[in-house]
């Protein structure tokens, strides 16, 4: 019953959303260059299904690669900031400043820096845009570890590494996954940004751009929906990982 509800409720919500969309377009009598309706989309998908498959794959793998780099680098940076007060004081303003830069401005910078390296630039952007929440959450998680937690092992002569592995790391996992959920959507946005803005792009972003240049409005909307679906898949994959590795942090439902 409960699992049925868990699947049925979001499914019905999506159906209602699509129905409302269709109704809005129909009631306002919008032409498809103002707003395509859901019923226009199947035609776009069946006509360009190969491009959609290739584009989705390109968007997906570059997002995941960028995110993987962000996890590695963000965790490392978070550990440095979590364990060293000096590193925290020194790095924090730089990180905040870097994070505040609108990432769209970086696209031409990267494109000039690594000319023609489209895959590399895209992965780099996904990484740059998404490591910040991970670094901050790991850093805060480690630096706010109550001293008693450390002391139960430290008083037995355990090494710093053992304390990190047995206490600090698992204790920070819930915060880490919270950040990862933010990061996964950010990385996705980073990938799309490069795909859309930079010339000769690939992936779903480039498909969107070609829809625009060819005035194929249903195609553009079809890409948006595909992006949403891909985003949902990525997000819930992280949720699944969270369940597996940090499921203990979930409060039992009352």
């Amino acid at each position: 019953m409960q699992t049925f509800q868990k699947i049925a409720v979001p499914f019905i919500a999506i159906l209602i959303f699509i129905a409302l969309w269709e109704f809005l377009v129909w009631a306002n009598n919008w032409p498809d260059y103002v707003m395509a309706s859901p019923s226009d989309l199947p035609a776009a998908y069946s006509k360009f299904w190969e491009l959609f498959l290739i584009g989705s794959w390109q968007t997906l793998w570059r997002t995941v690669a960028g995110l993987a780099l962000a996890v590695l680098f963000g965790t490392l940076l978070g550990m440095i900031m979590g364990f060293s007060r000096i590193a925290r004081d020194g790095l924090y303003p730089i990180l905040v400043g870097f994070n505040a830069i609108p990432k769209a401005t970086l696209v031409p910078v990267l494109a000039l820096l690594f000319i023609g390296q489209h895959n590399f630039n895209t992965v780099l952007m996904a990484f740059l845009i998404s490591f910040f929440p991970i670094a901050v959450s790991v850093g805060i998680g480690l630096s706010t570890l109550e001293p008693e937690y450390r002391d139960i092992l430290r008083s037995l002569g355990a090494s710093r590494f053992t304390i990190f592995r047995k206490i600090a790391l698992p204790k920070t996992l819930p915060e880490f996954f919270g950040a990862l959920k933010v990061s996964v959507t950010l990385a996705f946005i980073g990938t799309n940004l490069v795909e859309i803005i930079s010339p000769h792009g690939r992936g779903l972003g480039a498909l969107f751009l070609s829809g625009q240049t060819n005035s194929n409005y249903p195609l553009m909307f079809a890409v948006l929906i595909a992006l949403a679906v891909l985003g949902i898949i990525l997000y819930y994959f992280v949720v699944l990982l969270e369940r597996i590795f940090a499921g203990w942090a979930e409060r039992p439902q009352q």
Binding site: E148, Y149, D151, L156, G157, K171, L173, A246, W248
Partner: peptide, 15 residues
């Protein structure tokens, strides 16, 4: 290694 400690907060590991 021959010391045991207990605090006001039981500091049990939830995982």
């Amino acid at each position: 290694k021959t010391v045991g400690m207990a605090f006001q907060n039981p500091v049990l590991l939830e995982w």
